[in-house]
Design a binder for these strands. Sequence first.
DNA 1: CCGGATCCGGGTTGATACTG
DNA 2: CAGTATCAACCCGGATCCGG
Lengths: 212, 212
Amino acid sequence: MRSYGQFCGLAKSLDIIGDRWTLLIVRELLIRGPSRYTDLRIGLPGIPTNLLADRLRDMEEAGLLRRDMSPAPAAAAVYVLTPRGEALETVIAALGRWAAPLLEAPAKDDVFLPHWLVLPARLYLTDRAPRKPPVRIEVRDRDQRVTLEAANGRVTARVGPADKPDAVIIGPTPLAWQLLLAKIDLAHARKAGLAVEGKPAALKRFGPLPRQ
Amino acid sequence: MRSYGQFCGLAKSLDIIGDRWTLLIVRELLIRGPSRYTDLRIGLPGIPTNLLADRLRDMEEAGLLRRDMSPAPAAAAVYVLTPRGEALETVIAALGRWAAPLLEAPAKDDVFLPHWLVLPARLYLTDRAPRKPPVRIEVRDRDQRVTLEAANGRVTARVGPADKPDAVIIGPTPLAWQLLLAKIDLAHARKAGLAVEGKPAALKRFGPLPRQ
DNA sequence: CCGGATCCGGGTTGATACTG
DNA sequence: CAGTATCAACCCGGATCCGG
C-alpha cells in the first residue's frame, strides 16, 4: 500500500494494516492460532490466492506474523502472529463493537463460517447467571465445532469440540447465532432446522450484552 | 468498496470504513468539528479532490456524516459527523495506540500538520502533576494554533488559540511534539529552531504515558 | 476562492488456470 | 498443499477544467 506520508498514528497504522484483506487475515490467526495457507484460504472466502500470498509476505515484512516450519514429520509451513500482530486484537475488537448494530439483521447472501462465532461470542455475549456453575456448549455446523463457555460472568469461546458439553446446537450457524442472541426462541429455531441436544436450559446462560 | 460478503463484525465494518482515506476524513472531522470541503482538503494532504468528493458522498450514504448548509449569509456547505460517525473515535483511538511505537522516531518526508497534535496529545500524553492547578499551553506553527491543557490528571487538546496560556511553543510542529514527549530537552529544541514564551516550567506538566 | 466534475494512466484487486 | 501466472475490471492518483 502506498503510504499516506502523514506523521499521524492513524495514518501510520493504516499504512500497515489498511490494505484490503489484511485485518481479516489477522482475524483468522487470532481465532484459529497458527494456521496453514490452505486453512487461511478456507477461512477467507473470496480471497484471490495471489492476494493471500502477497499479503502474507507483506505482513511478515511488517512484523505482524512469522512463517514457521512445523517439526520434522509433517513439513507444513504455518503462519503465526507475532506479539505485534496479536496486539491488533484491540483494534479488531473496537471495529467489531462498532459494527454490532450491523449484525442484528440475519445475513442474506453473506457467508457465515462457524469459527467466526468466536469473536462475536467474546464481544457481544454475556453470562446471564454469573453465580451458577460454569456452562459449556458446543455449536456444530457440518464438521465444524466451536465451544462456548459461560463462567464467572464471562463468556469465552474457541475453535474445537467441547469436553462434556451441557448442550450441543447442531445446524446452520446463522440460526445458532440468532438463538444465542435470543433473537429467536428454541421452538422457532427447531422449526427452522436447528437441533439441540443435551440440556436446552444451558443456552439461557448466554445472552446479548445490554445496550451500551 | 466491494463488500467482503461475510457475516462478521470486522468484515462489515471494513465494508463501510475500509476504503482508502475514509478514516482519515473521520479524523479530520473529529479534530476540527464541522468542516468545509476546502478545510478537509487542506487537512488531508495528498487526497485527490475527486476522491474526497466521492468519499463524502459514500460516507453520507453510509450515515457517517451529514452535509449541512450553514445559515443564510455565507452559503457554505459544512460536513458534520453523525453520532454513528463520532462513534468511530474508539476505533481511531485503538489504531492510534497500536501505532504509538511508530511515532517515536521523528518524521522524515512526512507531513505533520499542527492540528494533528490533538489526537496524540489525548492518547499519548499524561498530566504529570495531577494535584497542581491546571496548566494551559499553546502550540503555534505559522498561523495554526493548538491548545493543550493538563488538569486533574488528564490532558485535553483542541484546535484554536489558548486563553491566557502558561506557555507558548512557537515553531515547527515536529519539534514541539518531540519536546512534549521529552524526547529532546528545551535547550536542544531552542537550538533547533523552537521558541518558548511564558513559563517553560509549564511544559513539564506534560509527558509520555508510561509504557503500557 | 469555493466546491466540486471530468479525464486519463497506472496500480491494485478479482477470477481462474496452472504447476512443483 | 502451497503457492505462481495471467489477464480483465476496477480503483486510485494527478491534472485539468468549470460554474458560482
